[in-house]
């Protein structure tokens, strides 16, 4: 019998026996506190009310709005297509089925973003990805989407674009009609006629 087999046998026994000497190690089941801290300080979890409004209007099927307010508040007013998971029920396994859906981005919202942020941290700690918070919550929603303020006349053109989007979104969500002043949209159309050019035909 080759001696090396005996050495290998002893090595395996020593290695396996050495396992008993290792101290107990607690693995964090869901997320390391340090990782959690890093993801909490990232602003990337926020989506703006404009982004949410745009995705609702476009009928984005990957958007999952989660209202973390109470059932009464949810029934009184909620965003279109939102589901209600009150923040104290977020640990209920049946509700968690709504969080881990592949390719869906879950956006939490509440009146402001405090409760939504809390829900986000809980969900993150439970190990879910693709979760976001609507920045400013419903208060910001009302301020920006439902009753947008007209920017000052000296504001940048991009702000006017944003304003016109918000006006449109406001119409979409409230069904309100917007009176368009007569002078708007009545610019004189400049018709640019193509200059006639003489084309050499044939010959070449």
């Amino acid at each position: 019998m080759n001696k090396n087999y005996i050495y290998l046998t002893l090595l395996l026994i020593v290695l396996a026996g050495g396992l008993f000497l290792l101290p107990e190690k607690e693995n964090y089941q869901h997320m390391d506190p340090e990782d959690l801290m890093w993801s909490i300080v990232q602003p990337t979890r926020y989506v703006s009310t404009d982004q949410v409004a745009k995705r609702i209007i476009e009928g984005d099927p990957t958007l999952e709005l989660i209202d973390v307010r109470t059932i009464d508040e949810f029934e009184e007013f909620s965003l279109q297509g939102a589901i209600n998971i009150p923040i104290d029920s977020i640990m209920v396994p049946e509700y968690q089925d709504y969080l881990g859906i592949e390719d869906m981005s879950a956006v939490f919202y509440s009146d402001d973003d405090i409760k939504a942020d809390q829900a986000w941290v809980l969900a993150k700690r439970l190990g879910y990805d693709h979760i976001y918070v609507m920045k400013g919550g419903l208060n910001c929603w009302i301020r920006t989407i439902i009753k947008p303020e007209r920017p000052a006349s000296t504001a940048a053109a991009s702000e006017f674009e944003l304003y016109s989007f918000r006006r449109g979104a406001s119409m979409y969500f409230t069904g309100a009609e917007i009176a368009i002043p007569d002078d708007e949209g009545k610019q004189k159309v400049q018709v640019a006629r193509k200059k006639k050019t003489v084309v050499a035909e044939g010959g070449c």
Binding site: L12, L15, A16, L19, L22, K25, N27, Y28, Q29
Partner: peptide, 16 residues
């Protein structure tokens, strides 16, 4: 044996 030592060294999280 390797996985248990790796877990101890923090190179792999056995629970994941």
């Amino acid at each position: 044996i390797g996985l248990l030592y790796f877990n101890y060294m923090g190179w792999i999280n056995l629970d994941m």
